[in-house]
Amino acid sequence: MNPADAFDPLRPRLLRIAYRMLGIVAEAEDVVQEAYLRWHQTDRAAVRDAEAVLVRTVTRLSLDVLKSARVRREEYVGTWLPEPIVDAVEGDDLTLTLMMALERLSPLERAAFLLHDVFGMDFEEVAKAIDRDPAACRQLASRARAHVREARPRFPVSEAQGRELASAFYAASRGGDLRALQGLLAQDVVVYSDGGGKTKAALNPIYGREKTLRLFEGLLRMLEENYSQLVHEGFVDGLPAFVTLEKDGTLQTTALGIEDGQVVAIYVTRNPDKLHAVRGLVKDKLPT
């Protein structure tokens, strides 16, 4: 059998696992490609369950990458956010907010939680994938689950409500209606901005409604009202979001964590290294 015949139908699932582990599309694609090369070299006639073998391979490769990636993220300039995936159907409810919670976990906790709770593998298979016994995997997943539970919104909004709030947020923040913006923000809202040292962005998170209002007021004063061009509305990793072309020519995604009708978190990605896929998605709406 051609190696691709068994591998290609599993590629989307393998990419989802690798991306959820790593948070970077290019790294996930590299991991899956390496798994494909190893699949070529495998005695496939002796393999009873190709999916189990390939998930195991992708997980272990991702763990190797994640260990070195965590060192790089410690040296990262400013806040690190996962690469934004726009309007993708991921087949799970792990939003950007929850992925940020996973960043606080160890690589093994993250793997155990994702494989069991998100991708539905039993602990026997998880144990084989991460080379630990099932009891240890249960403990790892349990610790991870507690972190994720804390980050999961208690009062989530519907898709329609999310779109409506994102549209209202864009209009208020870019049109200078600070009173309307204030009404949209939770008292303890947090702004995360990822420029990666490549573009202007806040180096540290901005906490609280008042500081957030001052941030947008300053941007309006500095760059004038309506300083951005809206090029796409939709979702980023499950959160209501929009894509803009800013006055300085920077492409940017803004995703909103919403709970009980208010914005509790704002995730802004400006690092151009993380926006190649987004640029391709909206290229027809960008100036030539």
Rank of each mutant, 00 (worst) to 15 (best):
V71D: 10
W80A: 11
D133A: 13
S68L: 11
I85Q: 14
R138H: 13
S167V: 03
M121A: 13
E246A: 13
A255H: 00
E124K: 15
V32N: 04
L115T: 10
D133Y: 13
G195D: 00
F235W: 09
I266Q: 02
L102C: 06
Q252T: 15
L275E: 02
P82R: 07
E75Y: 11
L245I: 11
I17F: 08
V118N: 06
V65I: 11
D194F: 09
V264D: 00
F7Q: 02
G120Y: 12
R60C: 04
E51N: 12
G261I: 05
E225D: 08
E259H: 12
L230G: 05
Y207A: 05
T42S: 08
L256P: 00
A141R: 02
L215Q: 13
K198A: 14
S167D: 10
W39V: 03
G208F: 03
R209P: 00
G280F: 06
A255L: 02
V268M: 09
D177W: 07
T95S: 15
E164T: 14
L251K: 00
E109K: 04
E83Q: 15
A101T: 00
R174V: 00
G208L: 04
T253K: 04
G162I: 02
I130S: 09
E224V: 06
A241K: 03
A166T: 00
P9E: 12
L115A: 13
A171R: 15
P12Q: 12
W39A: 02
L223S: 09
E51L: 02
L22T: 09
L94R: 03
A255W: 04
R209V: 05
L203C: 02
L178W: 01
A4E: 14
E233W: 07
R73F: 05
L108K: 15
A168F: 05
L281P: 01
L66N: 06
A186Y: 06
G280V: 03
T199P: 07
R132K: 14
P3E: 10
L245E: 03
D273L: 15
R209E: 06
R138K: 15
G238A: 08
L105S: 08
E90L: 14
E246G: 06
A112C: 11
L102E: 01
K67P: 00
D5G: 04
T42M: 13
V243H: 04
E34M: 14
E246P: 04
A146Q: 14
K67D: 09
V278P: 01
L81V: 02
A180K: 15
P134M: 01
P287S: 06
L245A: 11
H116E: 12
T212E: 04
S167W: 04
A101E: 00
D273P: 00
S62Q: 08
L108S: 05
L181N: 03
P134I: 06
R16Q: 12
L114Y: 12
D177C: 10
T212G: 05
K283C: 03
A88G: 13
K283I: 07
V32F: 10
G23C: 10
S173F: 05
K211S: 07
A4F: 09
